[in-house]
Simulated assay, not measured.
Amino acid sequence: MTLPLIPPMLATPGRLPPAVQDQRWAYETKQDGQRVMVYLPGDGSLSLRARSGEEITGAYPELRPLGDALGATPAVLDGEVLALDEQGRADFQLLQSRMGLAHAPARAARRAAQVPVHLVLFDVPYLTEPLLRLPYLRRRERLVELGLTGAYWSTPAAVVGHGAEALAATREHGLEGLVCKRLDSVYEPGIRSRAWIKIRNMRAEDVIVGGWLPGRGRLSGLPGAVLVGQRAGERLRYVGGVGTGWSEAERAELAALLRDAASERCPFDPVPRVPGARWVLPRLVGEVSYSTRTRAGLLRQPSWLRLRPDLTPEDSAADLPEGSGGGDAP
């Protein structure tokens, strides 16, 4: 049969619901992977579509057996494709080696043998008929009843209430964050809804500014991003570019400080490949937030928090192990 195309419902960034409303919400682990809608027509076939609507079935051949899991029952499932590290945690950098291979079946099969993926399922907006108007709690019950657990897919539990404890647990185990879903929420295809709230666990560290990239348009003459590093022994290792988090006044202040510290020599060792970079003496210390690090030690999703005029580069707390950091701009 022909299933309806259903764009995924999206969560809005935010905070935990008020404690008095805690029991009205379910809490799921936020995963660092690729969002997918799974189409099971009931004929043994399977189709995967990315959040953009692109057909990506060919990129993940190990998921094809899921097409038989519900027999002749047609369904559309909502989930996330993950690549897991040795500790069983989602590693987006690993997953990137699997993405983009939808039209390269031979390469996809080879990568599947080397880096198998795991699909976590968390909603069912269609099961024989549309379930869009059913409340989340009922859809979740229907999904759990399907018993979809296999070598390459599973249906992780959601917790009702205990949001603060659930968020603390994700931080303790180094997970990306939490998604809060109101129990009475309907499924809103393609909508970024306040009925789903995502909370990303962010870390904060001190960094040393070693360069910058000029802004464009209205930011002409101002820094569009600063290039930052952290100490690794006697060297300053590049850990990424930070292009968000400033007010206009803070960006102007930083521009003046960068001009005063201009240098012809790159302070990072090794020198990162960042076209158009302008180098400065490594004497400014700032604090940034970020979600996690890549395998090369680069910061993922960094955002500027503040200058640290109270610290010198020698005082900054972070000290990378030798061999981490460096490389191209993220």
Rank of each mutant, 00 (worst) to 15 (best):
264 E>K: 10
300 R>D: 08
69 A>W: 02
319 D>L: 11
143 L>R: 07
264 E>Q: 08
230 Q>H: 03
268 F>K: 11
328 D>T: 12
258 L>N: 04
259 R>N: 01
17 P>R: 05
289 S>L: 07
152 Y>D: 03
32 D>M: 09
321 P>M: 04
126 Y>T: 10
79 G>Y: 05
291 S>L: 15
170 T>E: 05
103 H>T: 14
199 I>H: 01
11 A>M: 10
260 D>L: 14
285 V>W: 06
69 A>T: 08
19 A>D: 14
155 T>F: 02
303 S>M: 07
215 G>E: 08
295 R>I: 00
25 W>Q: 05
194 R>N: 03
43 D>Y: 07
192 R>W: 10
200 R>G: 00
323 G>H: 09
326 G>R: 04
144 V>K: 07
80 E>I: 10
146 L>S: 03
50 A>V: 04
10 L>P: 04
113 A>V: 01
110 R>W: 06
155 T>D: 09
188 E>C: 02
84 L>I: 01
50 A>D: 06
190 G>N: 02
29 T>M: 05
257 L>C: 04
242 V>P: 04
203 R>D: 15
259 R>L: 15
219 L>Y: 13
171 R>C: 03
212 W>K: 05
276 G>E: 13
293 R>V: 12
299 L>M: 14
39 Y>E: 07
86 E>C: 01
237 R>P: 00
66 L>F: 10
167 L>K: 05
228 V>W: 04
234 E>L: 09
251 R>E: 04
75 A>K: 07
265 R>H: 12
149 T>M: 09
140 R>G: 11
35 R>I: 09
323 G>R: 13
206 D>I: 03
232 A>G: 15
315 D>M: 10
319 D>N: 14
205 E>M: 05
27 Y>H: 14
182 R>P: 03
257 L>P: 01
207 V>F: 07
124 V>P: 03
313 P>E: 13
126 Y>Q: 01
232 A>N: 10
152 Y>E: 05
90 A>I: 01
219 L>N: 15
161 G>F: 02
45 S>W: 00
36 V>I: 13
14 G>F: 06
190 G>K: 10
295 R>E: 14
50 A>C: 00
161 G>Q: 05
255 A>G: 10
267 P>D: 13
15 R>F: 14
10 L>G: 02
191 I>M: 00
91 D>S: 11
306 R>Q: 13
106 A>E: 15
